[in-house]
Nucleic acid binder design. Structure first.
Length: 580
RNA sequence: CGGAAUUUAGCUCAGCUUGGUAGAGCGCUGCGUUCGGGACGCAGAGGUCGCAAGUUCAAAUCUUGUAAUUCCGACCA
């Protein structure tokens, strides 16, 4: 491919508002072009990378026994109203109307759409299990698109769905998908972790998340050298609390004027923050019109983990109560809230670490006052103890190793959905015994365009992008240093033809640019191998440079194809090793 | 949904405080020199200053509204 015929609008400067390395470099390298906030055009180079990724996905899906199909992005709202997600999905759902005023949506995910097909097409367990998938653009009206194509309003996704008549079928499909996902991420050259995850609004209990450690990651991964890895929302550590044995002292109310945070209260009372109880007041939405006030007690220096709390409560939504609600139920503003004297209408949940404490300090439900020497049962009741806190770095994970934190980009997620959607939409089959059973569903997704961001984020350097050979837009970049010299152009063309004959994809920079411009652009666009045809062309010698390492070798022209083959193989093996 | 900032040439930005009719660098076109790490000289093209209304003899500049974009927070595949 001749570079003069490509559209690769490279830039010297990145937009001032670009933050992430991948964002800056993909723009500077002429890969992506912004159309609107969170909406991007994929220029020829980016699209080649996307197609490479898609091919890897298709191969691995086929190995896993999944079959590709394509659903529309434009969906009638009816099904979503039926499943309840037309409302539940919230503002991220793009809603629109057709000319007859019928409600439509732009699909943000396709559980309903696939379930409907299965419901109407499959009536017997004999046709199951079935695993289908698609590569398609999804639409989510993200309030805050970020970091180039990392979080967009329209993005390409691999979404797959398994349908089984029994749990065993689901387990098998899930395991096959998990294996396929590992293969895909290995092959695209990504450093990633498989982590325990919270399933969010998707429903279903069992899920694994695939996350790529990167500075701009929006999630926190808690992991260990022993192999444990979990989303912060799910991470647990060994309980190391020790029952305090001090004699209970008399409950005493102290003024703590102006103290709103735990630290301020600690200072005001002259005690350590870990002897203070932090009381967070939440409203848990249990159903459409029923909200349960919940007071959560934590050790002062711990943070509430809302996902864990939400699981325990089994509520639909959980949010911090408003100041008005705090005053209404507890009689004070946040900062002075506590469990003493709280009525039965407010549920009191407490973290396990609170259970072992005696003589605690806590808000007195009287603005500007705290109690000291509060004790469980004697001074206040706790309805439920549990693990409701975020783990911290250095704590011991379930595998016995100390926990470390890293930000991560979520690149894939697989769920054992169960019968949530099939039950709602009536997708049932006859089982062996002739009984109607709900089909059991699994849901699997990879953000394809986000994958590009994640890889770029992990591999780019200060000179530009550095694509792993498996998904690079081209294998080799051939650069005649001076396109006006016939000798160099002729040799470069010959090398290009030979490499293409040998099965490589080659981009030849046939532009009449100066050497510096060509080299800078070459570094920016990040093709793994560069062949420079320059001064020593007349001796039949060219230079081969590896983009990733900067290493160069000089070889005779007739050895170029062989050398490129060896180098690409080495790079590919390095990637495989690093991905492990 | 709260809070903040930005919007002037294809890109990165100056000009605005103190109103007088548009600037730089890069990029682009032509000519010449140069030719292995974003060269240099000369000559050019290119902007109803986000949009709308207002104040004024006069608005990029002041006022009001509005939109887009970005950041912080909230929310969340």
């Amino acid at each position: 491919m001749q570079q003069s015929k490509m559209l690769i609008p490279t830039k010297k400067e990145a937009p001032s508002d670009a933050e992430a390395l991948s964002h800056k470099m993909m723009i500077r390298a002429g890969y992506i072009y912004q159309v609107s906030a969170g909406v991007w055009s994929y220029l020829p180079m980016a699209y080649r990378v996307i197609r490479k990724v898609e091919n890897i996905i298709r191969q691995e899906m086929e190995k896993a026994g999944a079959v590709e199909m394509l659903m529309p992005g434009l969906l009638p709202a009816d099904l979503w109203k039926e499943s309840g997600r037309y409302e539940a999905y919230g503002d991220n759902l793009f809603k629109l109307k057709d000319r007859r005023d019928r409600d439509f949506i732009l699909g943000p995910t396709h559980e309903e759409t696939f379930t409907e097909v299965i419901r109407d097409s499959i009536k017997s367990y004999k046709k199951l299990p079935l695993v289908v998938y698609q590569l398609q653009d999804k639409f989510r009206d993200e309030d805050r698109p970020r970091y180039g194509i990392l979080r967009g309003k329209e993005f390409e996704m691999l979404d797959g769905y398994s349908f089984s008549a029994d749990q065993k079928g689901l387990d098998q499909a899930y395991d096959l998908q998990a294996k396929a996902y590992r293969n895909i991420f290995d092959r695209v050259g990504l450093n990633y972790k498989v982590i325990l995850a919270d399933s969010g609004t998707m429903g279903g209990k069992n899920s694994q998340e695939f996350s790529a450690p990167a500075e701009v990651g929006e999630d926190v991964i808690a992991y260990t050298d022993g192999g444990y890895a979990a989303n912060l929302e799910k991470a647990t550590s060994k309980f190391t609390g020790v029952q305090q044995t001090d004699e209970p002292k008399e409950l005493e109310k102290k003024p703590t004027p102006g103290a709103h945070s735990v630290d301020e209260a600690a200072e005001s009372l002259g005690m350590e923050s870990d002897q203070i109880i932090k009381a967070m007041f939440y409203m848990a939405k249990m159903s459409e019109d029923e909200s349960q006030p919940v007071l959560v007690l934590m050790r002062g220096n711990d943070e509430v983990n809302e996902a864990k709390l939400k699981d325990e409560l089994g509520c639909e939504e959980l949010e911090l109560a408003s100041e008005e609600d705090a005053v209404k139920y507890l009689g004070a503003h946040p900062g002075s809230l506590g469990p003493v004297g709280v009525g039965e209408e407010v549920k009191i949940y407490a973290d396990n670490y609170v259970k072992v404490m005696v003589n605690m300090a806590c808000g007195a439900n009287d603005d500007g006052h705290h109690y000291i020497n509060a004790n469980i049962d004697r001074d206040f009741r706790v309805d439920q103890f549990g693990d409701f806190r975020n783990v911290k770095e250095g704590e011991i994970a379930p595998d016995g190793h100390p926990i470390k934190f890293t930000p991560g980009i979520e690149i894939g997620h697989i769920f054992k959905l169960g019968t949530h959607y099939t039950h709602q939409l009536g997708a049932q089959v006859l089982d062996k015994n002739g009984r109607l059973v709900d089909v059991i569903m699994g849901s699997y997704g990879i953000g394809v365009t986000r994958l590009l961001s994640a890889v770029a984020e992990q591999t780019a350097d200060e000179n530009g992008l550095v694509w792993p050979d498996s998904i690079a837009p081209f294998d080799v970049h051939v650069i005649p240093v001076n396109a006006k010299k016939d000798e160099q152009m002729k040799m470069a063309n010959e090398i290009t033809v030979n490499l293409e004959k040998a099965g490589y994809e080659v981009l030849i920079d046939d532009r009449k640019e100066r050497a510096g411009v060509k080299f800078a652009d070459s570094d920016l666009i990040g093709i793994p191998i560069r062949v420079t045809v320059g001064k020593r062309a007349s001796d039949g010698i060219v230079e081969i440079k590896i983009r990733k390492t900067g290493e160069t070798v000089e070889v005779k022209t007739e050895e170029v194809a062989d050398t490129v083959g060896i180098l690409l193989k080495q790079l590919s093996e390095q990637n495989t090793n690093e991905a492990d």
